[in-house]
């Protein structure tokens, strides 16, 4: 399998507090990987380290055979290959839906207006938000915002999509619409790395589940193995608490 991102011995600490300790793992092309674990286990930090919103304190992140933590590496270019979806959506408040999906294409990828618009519309259609092109973020519900945020990330045509607890800030009745879009993306063969608390969703959609606790990867494997037949004591405990 073709490796897209490989993480080696990644460390991250905030001051004296170690959040990630010697994390090693790989995301392969076309794979859907879910990161699970209790809050504070470092899963969001890991995701944010991958696109360098947090700067790791040690280790390597290998993308396309190059360590992007080298000083020489063009971080901005690297980021365009990763689509990021935030817990709080973070749509650009000053732009409407269409322009939210276009501004990166225009200013970073330097695409033409027409090409950017067509691409944006294509992905807005995918997430079912093409009727809202002129809406401002504040006019949308949480679920709608998150779907636009997914379209915005997709419009950059990234190699990997990163989701940081995409449904955690949503009202319960809106979780479904966002998960549905993500399921569809998974079925289409997108490479996805998802931090989530939705166990049911993780079981259905992922090829591999990574369980983290206290900044280390405790266990990883196919969903049947990690969720149904966990090997590690800490995993069992976590699942007992969350699955009930």
């Amino acid at each position: 399998m073709e490796k897209v991102i490989e993480i080696k011995h990644l460390n991250k600490s905030f001051g004296n507090h170690e959040v990630l300790r010697d994390v090693n793992f790989t995301v392969n092309k076309g794979e859907v990987v879910c990161l699970i674990g209790s809050s504070g286990s470092g899963k969001s930090t890991l995701l944010r380290c991958i696109n360098l919103l947090e700067t790791p304190t040690g280790g390597e992140i290998i993308y396309n055979g190059e360590n992007i933590l080298n000083d020489k590496h063009d971080v901005r270019k690297y980021r365009t290959h990763l689509g990021m979806v935030f817990q709080q959506f973070n749509l650009f408040n000053n732009h409407n839906v269409l322009k939210n999906c276009m501004v990166g294409q225009l200013k970073v990828l330097k695409r033409s207006k027409e090409a950017a618009k067509q691409n944006a519309l294509k992905y807005l259609k995918t997430v079912g938000m093409d009727k809202y092109v002129n809406a401002k973020p504040k006019q949308l519900s949480g679920g709608q915002k998150q779907r636009v945020a997914i379209a915005r990330a997709l419009a950059m045509d990234p190699e990997v999509m990163l989701f940081d607890e995409p449904t955690s800030a949503l009202d319960p009745e809106m979780v479904g619409e966002v998960l549905k879009v993500m399921r569809q993306l998974a079925d289409e063969g997108n490479t996805m790395l998802i931090v989530t608390h939705e166990m049911e969703f993780a079981r259905e959609v992922s090829d591999r589940i990574v369980f983290m606790d206290k900044g280390v990867i405790v266990e990883e494997g196919p969903p049947e193995q990690v969720l149904v037949n966990p090997q590690q004591e800490r995993t069992k405990e976590f699942l007992k608490r969350t699955l009930k």
């Binding site: 919103l53 959506f89 650009f92």
Partner: peptide
């Protein structure tokens, strides 16, 4: 909101942009 900067950073924009 810090999220606005992060979202812009995440799609590859520089500080000036």
């Amino acid at each position: 909101d810090k999220g606005q900067y992060e979202a812009a950073e995440a799609i590859g924009m520089g500080h000036f942009q």
